[in-house]
Design a protein around this nucleic acid. Structure first.
Lengths: 217, 217
DNA sequence: GACCTTGTTATGCAAGTGTATAAATACTCC
DNA sequence: GGAGTATTTATACACTTGCATAACAAGGTC
């Protein structure tokens, strides 16, 4: 055995390394849950030594928060991305929004694991609570706005409290289906969740979101 | 200070001790998440020394598993308790079921904390996954049976896959509203969640669950 | 090429983890 | 009351955790 010298390495850009570490964290959480995300496991996955984490983040907690913020941001961005692609009728936009939230990459066990890991801490950690609440209300407002457009386009009027209740219910359906999909995706056929979600929203609002014969995507 | 001798103790019955340990575990998980449930913390809470845990459970993992099974069972039992009280029409039973799941004591931050604490680990632990799946499918089957009864009473027919999709959607609504209620109960008025849930289920099935003017409970 | 900055590694540490083991004590049976 | 049993405590051990620190080297600058 030759005496192994010090390990060679490359200096990566700061932003790149941060992102790599965050991605490695997400991978670890996805595979073995939050408790599987130790600094050593994360570093190993990122192809780096453990100490480096502390060079980019004040502590492990901060890395986890950054990871959480990353997926929250990613999720809302992807959900909204479905909106700009569909700039036709309000009906189509709502349909696209619902469907996008009930398919990959938003239905993803990695995201769910992190979400679950953090969600339990939310009520004890003000910072997390703020991050979460922001994301949640933003999402619900988005739904409410979409619903308002759809109803208006159909010439229907709705009171503020009706709108609110519609948004709450639709949000609940999406959340519930999302959880089921993430936790037991293999129980559902391809596109079944999105289909179920669309049907549910149609029933909840009493509208037709997609013209008959028109498949999603 | 007199030399403190060995700590005094009482021998409790086996079943009692097991239950105490499980309850202590649930307390720990509820308060500080899964990572707060160390053998020492659990033992302290149960008024016992850490070593005793291994006398009643092969390992910590088994205690956690038992604790999770306990809470899953408790939740489903409480949900079903609303059914036996209402043995009148299928419509009323479904309504009672929905309402019961969206009010105290099922809407409760402690239960939610427990749920959240365990749920993130479910997909990484086959034992927990089995327990979860059992509870989830049991719940959904209950919903499906209720839906079938309601539709049958209205003289409507439904295919198996329609029933399945109804159950999935209703289950999702209840789950979603339950989460919202637990996490941010102060955002909703008294009974608002149950009301929203009932309206949603009515819309999803296209039925009238409560005769007009009839308030819940 | 020599120097300097700083990203990166290597090593160590104190605290906490689950578990193993033996001693001590409470309770049962006679 | 005394012996026996097995619940319970106490202690120790091996290991992991997050974090601190110092040595090192990669890449830019002159």
């Amino acid at each position: 055995m030759t005496e192994g010298g010090r390990r060679k390495f490359r200096r990566e850009g700061e932003e790149r390394r941060r992102q790599d570490l965050i991605e490695a964290t997400l991978d670890c959480v996805a595979e073995h849950g939050l408790e599987g995300a130790t600094v050593r496991a994360i570093a190993l996955r990122a192809g780096v030594t453990a100490g480096l984490i502390r060079h980019y983040f004040p502590g492990k907690e901060d890395l986890l928060q950054a990871a959480y913020a990353t997926i929250v941001k990613r999720m809302t961005e992807q959900a909204k991305a479905a909106l700009v692609m569909e700039d036709s009728s309000p009906h189509r936009r709502l349909a696209a929004f619902v469907a996008a939230n009930l398919a990959a990459p938003i239905i993803d066990v990695r995201i769910f694991s992190l979400w679950a890991g953090f969600i339990g801490r939310v009520h004890a950690d003000p910072d997390l609570a703020a991050t979460h609440r922001e994301g949640y209300l933003g999402f619900r407002d988005e739904v409410e706005a979409l619903v308002a457009e759809v109803l208006a386009a159909d010439g229907r009027t709705a009171t503020q409290s009706e709108l609110r209740r519609h948004a709450i219910a639709i949000n609940a359906v999406i959340d519930g289906l999302w959880i089921e999909g993430c936790m037991a995706g293999e129980m559902f056929g391809a596109g079944e969740l999105a289909h179920t979600g669309l049907e549910a929203v149609e029933a909840l609002l009493g509208v037709e979101l997609q013209s008959e014969g028109e498949a999603i995507q």
